[in-house]
Design a protein around this nucleic acid. Structure first.
Lengths: 222, 222
DNA sequence: ACGCTCCTCCCCCCACGGGTGGAGGCCGGA
DNA sequence: TCCGGCCTCCACCCGTGGGGGGAGGAGCGT
């Protein structure tokens, strides 16, 4: 079989050079093109045959996400792996939505990078573990969505709460202490503690943080 | 650090025995429980401390997907890796929607299985390449729908956080205690307390509840 | 070489949160 | 009428969380 043809897209020469060395060390991979920004990459894609594109997220002129979107639109066959330095942002989601087949952190091990290129070249997809977690956090509720109706259906435990307990939970979600909740409701703190205790028991929460998280997910607070 | 405690759930003894041998070959992993169906697994989970569950999809009484859903509901801390023999079906999607942190084919290489357990134990997620492709085929259109980019724009305070602090905040949002976060990150609880303190200071939060609320509103967790 | 940020870890202190185990009053249904 | 759920309140205990204040090492930019 012929070697997988790779294009590198990154605004930093040294980064491209480094990736090129890594990839060329695998004799079933070959770097056939390099670009310094998204627009340049699209121009090159129109003239050269490429199997896999390694695309940086942050770039001048045209960023990696938008470049990915346009690339898959104009060249459906090409497989794109989006690279990022930090996984802090939600670029995973954006990259996948744009049609990327892979998402990796730049500090990935050389062999992981090589393996990732091979994986997407044969039609599979790859996402590094940290980003996978981030992606799933976004995707899971969406995938579950079609079955669930809005409102309390998402968290049946919350239906067990009495009206008073629900009010207390809402205020917990606002970040109020028991004393503040007591003041707000004009009751003693002891009463609030009782309610809180019931909320925790009924929702299966260990502490108020878990209960508040549940309340957020159920849309009780926002 | 103590070994990662694993539970095996599969209706075939031989399969469990095989997985157990593989996992026990890694001295940072230990199999602490086994179950023959989903219900049995849930019962055991209520009594035993477990970090990671390896869950088969096809099982009598209660299948792996539903068992996963209930397990994450009752034990938010536990991480679940769903296993399947064939990837023909859409069980990836269902598993993720149910809250699984991992999805692997049973014919995965032993070292991949071990690495997968480690990965989810430290809070990341893992999906094998073939299934990732299948998942993205479902998820990409869903993710593409909301073109807006929430997160950093909504809560500028969060941009002040260092990567480590951000990770800690996310785990706070999961409802973990400082001790559990320390275990996840393999650092001392004192370190976690330091990070938490910084998070509170930078976000202007009085306690972790307020910080978590902020994280939810910013979309850092959900 | 210097300073800076970040990550790591330690001490002491104590307020808040949560569990336990009560108590009384109000209201609606059996 | 009595039972049961809900709301109100109390005292006690103690674990976790958070503040204060410090300290060392790694990494980076100047």
């Amino acid at each position: 079989m012929t070697a997988v043809r790779v294009m590198l897209v990154d605004d930093q020469h040294l980064v491209r050079a480094g990736f090129a060395m890594v990839l060329e060390s695998a004799d079933d991979l070959t770097v056939v093109a390099q670009a310094g920004d998204g627009q340049e990459a699209l121009d090159l894609l129109a003239t050269i045959e490429v199997d896999v594109v390694l695309m940086d997220v942050r770039m001048p002129v045209l960023d990696g996400i938008e470049a990915t979107r346009r690339a898959v639109a104009s060249r459906p066959g090409v497989r794109i792996v989006v690279l990022t330095t930090f996984d802090l942002d939600e670029s995973v989601t954006a990259a996948i939505a744009a049609g990327a087949s892979g998402f990796l952190l730049k500090d990935a091990a050389p062999e992981d990078l090589i393996e990732a290129v091979r994986t997407v070249a044969r039609g599979d997809s790859v996402i590094d573990p940290v980003s996978t977690r981030r992606l799933l956090a976004h995707a899971a509720p969406l995938l579950a969505a079609p079955t669930t109706a809005p409102g309390s259906a998402a968290a049946p435990e919350l239906d067990l709460l009495t009206p008073r307990e629900r009010e207390v939970l809402v205020l917990m979600g606002e970040g109020l202490t028991n004393a503040e909740i007591a003041e707000r409701h004009v009751v003693s703190e002891a009463t609030v503690k009782t309610h809180v205790g019931h909320v925790l028991a009924k929702t299966g929460s260990r502490d108020r943080v878990q209960a508040v998280a549940l309340a957020f997910r159920a849309g009780l607070v926002r």
